[in-house]
Write a protein that binds this DNA or RNA. Structure first.
Lengths: 344, 344
DNA sequence: TGCCGCCATGTGAACGTTAACACTGTCCGG
DNA sequence: CCGGACAGTGTTAACGTTCACATGGCGGCA
């Protein structure tokens, strides 16, 4: 007795009830308890009830480590994410978590400070160490994508927003189509051409949006202005906006995301160029604030949450060996608000 | 031989190398491998090198499940989060993840769709099922906080943004002080009083900011206007802003967060009331876009990332039994921009 | 010289679960 | 009325670690 007390004192983590304890209390074998937990057939309803009761009484929680050890399945998927502070990534993490949980998986997260090959690979290894059954990687930059491509096979991996050309199963929005939608919208409003504030070099999504914009301009036979490159931030939008605001020829601007559009809006305001009377501005993403900017921002909507959900679908498909490679592209949608209008 | 092949075929998950395999290859016992992995003393450098070499050769990854099973430590902490889509929560998750990783922990996430007692408790149980060693809960609503209070002890738990009165160890920003800072700033600019667009009922942070505002008004002997209640969204800010814009007496508004301030800004613009010439507006949070709104928003800055870091400090402190209860309050900071000016 | 103690390693038993198989009855068809 | 199928349950052995000891060798000190 004394000995027992001493023993339980030296382990600082108190033992929580196990299957054996439940079994003893219910008067069955631990295997029967296991059967109840895993909803196996061939357990008498009455027995099942007795076991459940015992579980309730002891506040029994199955030990996931033991289970993972013997089944070799962690029921966990990992997310690698860069700057999950932004609306887009944050929403996707949310969508992924919801979908994963619905599919019976836990979600473990590893956020990387930079998108260098090195840090992405570190994150992959961290998650491998947790023996995740699959990884969804939000690493929307070439260096990150390259790192993904060099991950040893054998681990299910899906990239999100890594561009259509990536050598990795991926889900993303059709950026080319989205950019095209926005550009055509502005051309259709009578603007002679459309200027573009793009995302930074090395980002597949920036490149694809730029391409969609360019192709549309060219196809329409309009003159092709130089691209201004930002870094996705409102600040960079503001700076580029100041440049554009000075040029009276500029009547329509398509921005690579809403934050930059917000900066452009502010730059126009500062210089006294009215939106949409003098200049039309279109963004990309449809952040929740978009309808309340001055003026309400016309933008291309991506359904980030759905993107997250789909990435789990794809991942689970791969994990069960369905398709070796897959590619899912969602179609974005133009949201016309008041920041775009007919050319005067 | 044939038998061996068949066996490895029927298990669909192929066995990855274990300690035993490494041990055999290095010509030592599994225990020595364990010692090498855990950096135990008393291993000859030469032996250590041989083991490391074997690990590299086999691409050995320690099995975290087995380790967790025997040590009863998962090296994992859990995050419960509500609407991680917003800037604040998203930043905190980021800060938490960084800090946890630095402390050698993995991070598992459970996002709840609502802050009802039920769903918060479900999330707690999900994480308990993963045997996390501690939980950081971002559940900034009374119902969620109440749920936390009823979590069985024995699991380390820290609330973030749950209000100072909570019966749970917590970290948060000093909302009262922050609101006071904003309100005093406006009073000091000569405004006869300050109106308040508050967060929704049942949110401790909304309550505390309201209290800070009210106390400051009362202490200054100014007249106390009715509170307008929003729901944190830009939309609700816009709606309440429209109400306030009609009232010519309103010259200063303190908003419970930046999104609502953004909506108010837009409402003022629509009605033709100039900010800051006619009306001063101050927000709370300092979202990255705040400097680029029209006009740049004066706001109260909270360091969300730091908040996340601190919550891990507190959690780890509790988990190692340092203090049974703790409370950390960070001091927010006023960022004066151009949306606030002297009363005319 | 002999014993003690420490360094370097090995051995065996947990940890809590699932998988595989063994064991009872009961019911049904021949 | 007997054999076999099947429902319901129990028994034993993994899974890959760490922990608590046990072991052997070697150096130092009395």
């Amino acid at each position: 007795m004394t000995d027992g007390v001493r023993r339980s004192q030296q382990r600082h983590i108190p033992r929580s009830p196990g299957m054996m304890d439940v079994a003893k209390l219910a008067g069955v074998s631990h295997q029967t308890v296991s059967r109840v937990i895993n909803d196996h057939a061939n357990v008498r309803p009455q027995t099942r009830e007795r076991v459940m009761e015992a579980m309730r009484e002891l506040d029994y929680q199955p030990n996931s480590a033991a289970r993972a050890l013997v089944t070799r399945r962690s029921r966990t998927i990992g997310i690698i994410t860069f700057d999950s502070t932004l609306f887009g990534p944050a929403s996707m993490v949310y969508g992924i978590e919801q979908a994963a949980r619905a599919a019976g998986y836990f979600v473990s997260i590893a956020s990387v400070r930079s998108l260098s090959r090195r840090s992405v690979l570190d994150a992959v290894n961290q998650l491998r160490g947790q023996s995740v059954e699959g990884i969804v990687a939000l690493v929307p930059k070439d260096s990150g994508v390259a790192a993904l491509a060099s991950v040893p096979p054998g681990i299910a991996l899906v990239g999100v927003g890594v561009g259509g050309a990536a050598d990795v199963p991926m889900v993303g929005v059709n950026n080319t189509a989205g950019a095209s939608l926005a550009t055509r919208h502005l051309l259709d409003l009578g603007h002679s051409t459309v200027y573009h504030v793009s995302g930074p070099a090395g980002w597949p999504e920036a490149r694809e949006r730029r391409a969609g914009w360019r192709d549309t301009i060219v196809a329409a036979g309009a003159s092709l202005p130089d691209v201004l490159a930002g870094d996705w931030s409102a600040q960079s939008g503001y700076q580029n906006g100041q440049l554009l605001a000075r040029d009276k020829q500029v009547t329509a601007i398509f921005c690579g995301n809403d934050q930059m559009a917000l900066g452009v809006l502010r730059a126009m305001y500062d210089v006294g160029r009215r939106v949409p009377d003098d200049v039309s501005v279109v963004g990309f993403d449809d952040i929740p604030e978009a309808p309340y900017l001055i003026p309400p921002l016309t933008t291309v909507r991506q359904d980030f949450t759905e993107l997250g959900r789909r990435s789990i679908d794809l991942l689970l498909g791969i994990a069960t060996g369905a398709r070796p490679h897959g590619q899912i592209q969602l179609t974005p949608q133009l949201k016309v608000r008041t920041s775009s209008a007919r050319s005067s």
